[in-house]
Amino acid sequence: MAILKPILYILVYPGLIFLMVYSTFCEWFDRKLYARMQNRIGPLHTGRSGILQPVADIIKLFAKEDIVPEKADKHMFSALPVFALAIICTTALYLPLWHYSEAPSFISFPGDLIVVAYLLTLPTLIYFLAGWHSNNYFSAIGGVRVLTMLFGYEIPLLLALLSPAVLADSWRILEIARFFQDKPLLMLVNLIGFFIAVIALQAKLERVPFDIPHAETEIVGGQLTEYSGKKLAFFRLLGDIEMVVGAGLIAAVFMGGFPGGLLPGLAWFILKTLFIIFLLAAMRAATSRIRIDQMINFSWRWLAPLAVLQLFIVIIIKGMVS
């Protein structure tokens, strides 16, 4: 039985199966919201209100011809999508969902916030490598843009995640969540940090206004130009799961996590992640894509100083509270 629980945890909930199902639902939710904000209807035909459309898209991609360009690095080109998906599914395990032990375990331990932040950076690196090894001009430009953007948003995101950790006096996501569950009012202290984290997450997910690496009117598919079929489906899934994990991390760190055991925890998880996805969709609908230089300027002129300011506020508040 002791071994069964981790297996269940990895495979079913909140591991692979749950992630696949929930991430496709989130993609549908995002697409539908985005469509409604643009005065469109959005997916409609597959399943009830088009709820199965993301699944259908992925099945379609899996059925397509799988092309590896002649000039590309064949091993890297094929291995990268699998690696990326594996890494992001691993990251999902660190979200304090249902099974989290009081004592440190491989899933929850002091310092897992840093591990999650680190693991969330890896898909970006994989995007860059995918672009580079495609051996295509557009992919290479896209790949370089991915890395350039990483330097823009990663520091503000880390600083933003730091402030609740400082306030809760812990690097463990579970403990940060529990701290805010006990003192919900203190969540308001981190409001600036929350918005910085949401903006940085938008940049990490490469969505408008930060879809610079795969801006289709400029560089076609960006780093994924050469990808097709199964491999592209992997990257699609990666994007969806990254959205869920990113939203889940922000919900756990800034919004008090998912208390109350299995079912209430699941309900909180869905509610909070959908709220963050709503913010992401609204941002996507209200803005236009910016240039890479504008993005870096914006991150260092606004996001990073604001994140530092947030840290100062947290330190002052902490001095007042304790």
Binding site: M37, Q38, N39, R40, V208, P209, D211, T217, S288, R289
Partner: peptide
């Protein structure tokens, strides 16, 4: 112009 700049909402509204 909206579409080329990546501002899809603007595209949808003007075309409507």
């Amino acid at each position: 112009a909206g579409q080329e700049a990546g501002f899809e909402s603007f595209f949808m509204y003007t075309w409507r």
